[in-house]
């Protein structure tokens, strides 16, 4: 999950591992995260209604309940 990268590390072991991780690892992880975000946005781009302004204008509902 993309989200896991953001969570604070839980165990001390992991914490240590993070601290000694060489810079390249961090960079790789950042890149992987960016790719991950790009991938989901690409997918969403594909299904989003094409004309956002027209769509928003025409989305009119009546009250209910």
């Amino acid at each position: 999950m993309a989200q896991e990268q953001k969570q604070p590390r839980k165990s001390g072991e992991e914490q240590e591992a993070t601290e000694v991780a060489p810079e390249s690892d961090v960079a790789e992880r950042k890149e992987a995260l960016d790719d991950d975000v790009d991938a989901i946005l690409d997918e969403i781009d594909d299904v989003l209604e094409t004309n956002a302004e027209d769509f928003v204008k025409s989305f009119i509902q009546k009250g209910g309940e």
Binding site: I40, L41, I44, L48, E49, A52, F55
Partner: peptide, 22 residues
């Protein structure tokens, strides 16, 4: 927020409203 950061959108942008509906 991902859209805002990638496309530089303000909260008044119709695309964000569209995402809410969709």
């Amino acid at each position: 927020e991902q859209y805002r950061s990638r496309d530089g959108l303000d909260w008044d942008d119709a695309k964000l409203q569209l995402i809410d509906y969709q």
